[in-house]
Design a binder for these strands. Structure first.
Lengths: 186, 186
DNA sequence: AGACTATCTTGCCGCTGGCAAGATTGCACT
DNA sequence: AGTGCAATCTTGCCAGCGGCAAGATAGTCT
């Protein structure tokens, strides 16, 4: 067989990020181990440490990737629908379809909070969600309200704290629930 | 010295729960170790295992306690203010003043999801927040919207994702932000 | 007093994260 | 084409962790 795994992987960093996301999907962020992630990627656990420094570094990289993906998803929703509501739906959809990323992004205890790329990613997302620093206060409040609602809805959905009677389609639930929010004044 | 720690602690279970909450406040739920909790309580780590079965059992007991405390806080707010909004404020206040409990309550991956006392506690809280199973759909949706908003606001506050310009008083922020919610029809 | 049970400890195991040292490889420069 | 160098990955090691089995201690009931 030709593919007798070469000494140099060649594309290990993204492979490790994929393996980490898969592992977290399976066992949760808290139970994820660097060794298991490395096993899935077919390398030793210190190979992961080499690329990310330590476990927190790996999770931080995953969170940064998550903020990037979320930003793209939200921008795409805004572009396609020109609708505030559909951006919220895209937020919940992202949380549900990227459980691992979403979970890590909002557990700062697992991350290197001082990492510049992380701070950058968070700042960019914040601007998308509640406007830049120069926005007026009303707009900021409206953004925070909307973000809070969809964020809470997504997390409550993910950990099974929503009443079953609302059905099992997160997007549909979001549309119904978010309707209770007063439309933001432009 | 008289208190040369007797073989039998006498009140270990609650002492361990307190120690666990303190530890989580310090290092986060993921980094909490049974051994550290036991050290803080002055016993061996297997003493904790004896009372709670395993680590998930300890965290489950903490979550159950959290649901109970939250329920009491919400009921008190309702009783004192007769205000839907102030119940939401109490929710956020609880999250901020009981970080450890709050963190554990909403991370089911850390818990024994099948524990009857946990399911019971969750059910009771759900009734408080979005009405009983017999409530009409409109009321349920309004409850879910309100719960989502305050839950999202609390978690975003806890992990530093809110814009600084809103100030540093969670209760005040809640009042401003929750005002964006349409008042529930009675 | 003696038996029984609840509570807690010690000793052990495999797994984990991180460090140090060494092996392998690609690349730059000559 | 070869040679030095830096990047990439491995092996070996350590203390700390969670969980199990066995044993020690103490309160309770008769």
């Amino acid at each position: 067989m030709s593919r007798a795994r070469p000494y140099h992987h060649g594309d290990l960093r993204p492979a490790l990020l994929r393996a980490a996301a898969d592992t977290i999907d399976d066992v949760g962020a808290a139970a994820m181990s660097v060794r298991e992630v490395a096993r899935r990627a077919g390398v030793s656990h210190t190979a992961a440490t080499y690329h990310f420094g330590d476990k927190a570094g790996l999770l931080t990289a995953l969170a940064v990737e998550g903020y990037r993906l979320l930003g793209e998803a939200l921008a795409a929703a805004q572009r396609e629908h020109q609708s505030f509501l559909e951006v919220g739906v895209a937020y919940v959809r992202f949380a549900v379809t990227h459980r691992a990323h979403f979970e890590v992004m909002f557990q700062p205890a697992l991350l290197r909070a001082d990492d510049p790329s992380l701070q950058d990613a968070k700042r960019r997302t914040a601007v998308l969600l509640y406007g830049s620093a120069e926005a007026d206060e009303q707009q900021t409040v409206a953004g925070v309200a909307a973000w809070s609602l969809v964020h809470g809805l997504a997390t409550l959905w993910l950990n099974g704290n929503l009443p079953p009677r609302l059905g099992d389609d997160p997007a549909a639930i979001t549309r119904v629930v978010a309707a209770r929010l007063r439309v933001p004044r432009r």
